[in-house]
Simulated assay, not measured.
Amino acid sequence: MKLSIFALLVTSAAAFAPSSVERSSTALNMDRRAAFGQIATAGAVLAGVPAIASADGSVSAATINRARGIYGDRIAGLSGAVASGDFKAIAEEKNAFILFNSGAYANNKAKKNAAVAQTNDIFKAIRSGDKAAVKSAYDTYVATNEIRALPTVSADDGQGYCNDYDFRVRSKAGAIYVR
């Protein structure tokens, strides 16, 4: 896309470039075609320069709460699988652990490293096939990181969210009062 725009601008700049025929000069020794040619060339150069990335790794209380809510709920939902020894169900939610650790502790490297170590303990126990070790490691992880499931909210009990950008919209906590 950028290449085609660049080619179009270069072609239009060539069309406005002065020909070899001598023209009468203006006070600035430049005619309109030459000026538009230079403007088009400058525009083509600026269009070819990639935009400077300005992502700041936005970390706020809202993004931390979002990570705790979305991925914490998924981790809390594994309690039945942990109790029954369903290692496959726990392994399928590995990304929830990874995303929880990176999102909930984006500002605290020490807590993030501790949570990652606890996650590794859970999956080490899964690889060894020790049901009791998985339960112990999972319980420690949930308690240490204060993971709780989202509450079930109905429109009769109250309101769970207020706009479509809230992470609770399509969850069991996502109830809204509508008249």
Rank of each mutant, 00 (worst) to 15 (best):
R66V: 07
R66W: 10
A67D: 04
R68S: 13
I70V: 15
I70E: 14
G72M: 13
G72S: 09
G72R: 08
R74D: 15
A76R: 06
A76V: 07
G77V: 11
G77E: 07
S79C: 02
G80Y: 00
A81G: 01
A83T: 09
A83H: 04
A83K: 09
S84F: 01
G85S: 01
G85T: 04
G85K: 07
D86R: 04
A89Q: 03
A91Q: 13
E93L: 03
E93S: 13
E93N: 13
A96T: 01
F97T: 01
F97I: 01
I98C: 08
I98E: 14
L99N: 15
N101M: 10
N101D: 14
S102F: 12
S102V: 04
S102M: 07
G103E: 09
G103N: 05
A104Q: 02
Y105T: 00
Y105E: 02
A106M: 03
N107I: 08
N107G: 08
K109N: 08
K111I: 09
N113D: 14
A114L: 05
A114N: 10
A115M: 05
V116P: 04
A117D: 11
A117N: 10
Q118Y: 07
Q118D: 14
T119P: 04
N120D: 12
I122N: 07
F123G: 02
K124F: 11
I126R: 04
S128G: 05
S128Y: 06
S128E: 10
D130E: 13
D130H: 11
A133K: 13
V134C: 06
K135S: 15
A137F: 02
N145C: 02
E146P: 00
